[in-house]
Design a protein around this nucleic acid. Structure first.
Lengths: 204, 204
DNA sequence: GAATATTTTAAACGATTGTTTAAAATATTC
DNA sequence: GAATATTTTAAACAATCGTTTAAAATATTC
């Protein structure tokens, strides 16, 4: 009977997520996962049919998590300046919580672009957000600088994500402890918010 | 006699660089390298003592290339606005020429942070650039926004590098061909230049 | 509680990994 | 041009990879 402990399938899934995030698909072995989950190695193929299948299940979840929250904010009924701040803030919190997420996603897509089967829905989903509408309107009335959504979206995420993507590098180069990095990234985040708003918004 | 063809050692090194950049350390096998170089597999260990040694030699070169050019620009005797433009432009050209470079470096450091043995010299090297001097002076005289070099440096690189880091992702999401991506990244680059200057420089 | 279904186990599968060997081929030396 | 040194080769090494097997342990059904 398994009342207290979680089901084996979930235990493996969670363990696999931790290991994949840390070491990537190529760097992770089935035995790594079994060891992290403290289970017999045969069980990874008993519950999931293969390492690849297990990976794809986790990868899809993480991609969802990565895009879902930002789209939610882009559709909020708030002014564009607040919205930009919220997107950056959300991005920062996500990176703080899961610093390995972006390097993991980027790397796996880079090595196997077919993995990004995200239905083209994502494009239309982004294009049809309230944010995009606000952007068009602001540009029309001269309140916002003419800039495509393809440019403004990466701007809102790249500065923060890049910091965490190269967390180890930045810490080593600038000789920062974990605490110092956190303080630094916090102040960096505020610069990013202000910088993007300054550039995009032509009059208040 | 080897008059025309390059020496075997260099042939292997160049082949290994191509494969490592594309597939990373974990994803690359010794046989991949041998095949790319069109040489017997035993030669990779004959010239370089192991896959790891061969990798580290290439990795060090690429890291040098990655940092060297930016430091050169940071020390140029030009005004800070032109300098920012040049750093971004240089970064953009480097990414265009070798789109796999940043994801490769970030990923390998992420998986094995000890690989970044870059002497702490790099920190002092960055801190003692003319750019840093100009930054301090500009802040002192109120011409520049108070911002640490630790923040302004990543700002100048992250926006461009992130675009290429997630090249496959951005192309798929926004449904861009290679040509469209090039045009897009070019315009994005100009936005980045203007945005950073706008934010940093308080009066002209 | 015997019969059935499900889960877990240890052990092994063939394939591939990085690396080494020892002989063959080629280049260099004197 | 024989002797020596260097480079290249095919073959094999033990270790590890993802995966499978068939039996043991446990849970469920009636």
């Amino acid at each position: 009977m398994k009342c207290v402990s979680e089901k084996s399938e979930d235990k493996i899934r969670e363990a696999a997520k931790r290991v994949f995030l840390k070491k990537g698909f190529d760097g992770t072995t089935s035995r790594d996962i079994a060891k992290e989950a403290d289970m017999n190695i045969a069980l990874t193929n008993y519950y999931f049919r293969s390492k690849e299948k297990l990976f794809m299940e986790i990868f899809k979840d993480l991609m969802e998590m990565y895009f879902q929250s930002i789209i939610l904010i882009l559709n909020k009924p708030i002014d564009i300046k607040t919205k930009i701040s919220e997107v950056v803030e959300n991005n920062y919190q996500m990176m703080k919580q899961e610093p390995d997420l972006v390097i993991f996603i980027m790397n796996e897509i880079h090595k196997e672009p077919e993995r990004l089967l995200v239905k083209t829905a994502l494009y239309h989903q982004l294009k049809s957000t309230l944010f995009n509408q606000q952007l068009d309107e602001g540009i029309e009335t001269g309140k916002l600088r003419p800039i495509r959504i393809e440019s403004i979206l990466p701007l809102m995420t790249s500065c923060i994500e890049f910091l965490f993507l190269g967390k180890e590098m930045h810490q080593k180069i600038f000789n920062m402890s974990d605490e110092e990095f956190e303080a630094f990234s916090e102040s960096h985040k505020d610069h990013v918010k202000a910088m993007i708003c300054n550039y995009l918004i032509l009059e208040d």
